[in-house]
Simulated assay, not measured.
Amino acid sequence: MFTADELAVVRAYARQVAATAGTTNPRIGAAFAVVPREKFLAAPPWQIASLGGGYRPLLTADLVLAYQDVLFALQPDRGVNSGSPSLHARMLAELDVQISDRIAHIGAGTGHYSAVLSELVGATGHVYAIEMDRDLAGHTRSALADRANVSVIIADGSQWPQQEMDAIYVNFAVARPAEPWIENLRPGGRLVLPLGVPRQIRPSSSGRHASHGAALRIERGARGFAARWIGTAYFVCANGGLTIDENEIEALTAAFKRGDIEFVKSPIWKTEPRIGRFGDQWALCYDEP
């Protein structure tokens, strides 16, 4: 339980996160304010990411320290972190979560943002938290055990969801969307994902992160799929079934270096792109759908 002073810190943190994210949706800040972040962190001593790379330990496990807009290490040897609250607040605002939505959270980690999603969908909605790593998924199951509207599934994120969803939220960098993320969006459904290409050199102390990265929003409309750039975003890169070949990585790297990703308006999916080909039958383009 929070003391009155600690609760004031938590509420201030939630307001700061929403303000930094640039969202005016009051539901975003309210969801961050009621989810206890320390419940989803690794066991103390906590480590936070340093601006110059690597991690540094916090000297105490005072739970108030969990309520700052920094990255906490979950698996430092793999570069897996808790995620920047303000970045996630911005991406979740773009996901446009509604009460009663069914949402697939791909790459749930220890479940912090699954818990935020569960607040946003309410008791009549449902969140499917997909995590491939069994250690992380075990933490997630324990931390979310009191949330009846969340199901934790240990699986490769490239294979989920397996039914139509109102929204899909991806929390690792990919060089292309997985087929279920596009095919299982219902009409009006939204997909938010970090598009990125891995660094060529893996640091010895962490996992492989994106060297170029951008968060995108894709929506299924009556005339096809629309895409919108959300902002710069660097996540740890995907493993498992989402690993792609070097030719696709080179094509996407060249596209990032050319710039103008902020002007994309639609994805080309399962048709042969005229220009801008990234991989097999998909690309991003500047035309309206």
Rank of each mutant, 00 (worst) to 15 (best):
residue 226 A to V: 08
residue 246 E to I: 15
residue 258 R to I: 10
residue 219 E to V: 15
residue 223 R to Q: 14
residue 225 F to W: 11
residue 281 Q to S: 09
residue 266 S to R: 12
residue 232 T to Q: 04
residue 251 A to M: 08
residue 245 D to F: 06
residue 278 F to Y: 14
residue 286 Y to H: 08
residue 260 D to Q: 11
residue 264 V to E: 01
residue 286 Y to F: 15
residue 287 D to N: 12
residue 221 G to E: 07
residue 219 E to W: 04
residue 222 A to L: 11
residue 240 G to L: 09
residue 257 K to G: 00
residue 281 Q to F: 12
residue 282 W to S: 06
residue 265 K to V: 02
residue 235 F to L: 07
residue 255 A to N: 02
residue 248 E to F: 06
residue 237 C to M: 15
residue 283 A to F: 05
residue 281 Q to P: 01
residue 231 G to R: 09
residue 276 G to S: 08
residue 279 G to D: 05
residue 265 K to F: 01
residue 226 A to C: 10
residue 285 C to G: 11
residue 277 R to P: 03
residue 266 S to T: 12
residue 271 T to K: 14
residue 283 A to K: 08
residue 283 A to V: 03
residue 227 A to E: 02
residue 245 D to R: 15
residue 280 D to S: 13
residue 258 R to V: 08
residue 260 D to W: 05
residue 256 F to I: 09
residue 228 R to V: 01
residue 229 W to V: 02
residue 279 G to A: 05
residue 222 A to M: 09
residue 240 G to H: 06
residue 227 A to F: 04
residue 256 F to P: 03
residue 287 D to S: 11
residue 277 R to V: 06
residue 235 F to A: 08
residue 263 F to P: 01
residue 219 E to A: 10
residue 240 G to K: 10
residue 248 E to I: 02
residue 246 E to V: 15
residue 275 I to K: 12
residue 223 R to M: 10
residue 272 E to R: 10
residue 280 D to R: 13
residue 269 W to T: 00
residue 284 L to F: 12
residue 232 T to D: 05
residue 266 S to Q: 11
residue 227 A to W: 05
residue 222 A to T: 12
residue 248 E to K: 06
residue 261 I to Q: 06
residue 223 R to T: 14
residue 251 A to E: 06
residue 278 F to L: 15
residue 235 F to G: 04
residue 256 F to S: 04
residue 271 T to Q: 14
residue 237 C to F: 11
residue 223 R to C: 06
residue 222 A to V: 12
residue 260 D to T: 07
residue 237 C to D: 02
residue 267 P to L: 05
residue 232 T to H: 07
residue 229 W to G: 01
residue 264 V to G: 00
residue 254 A to T: 12
residue 282 W to E: 02
residue 252 L to S: 05
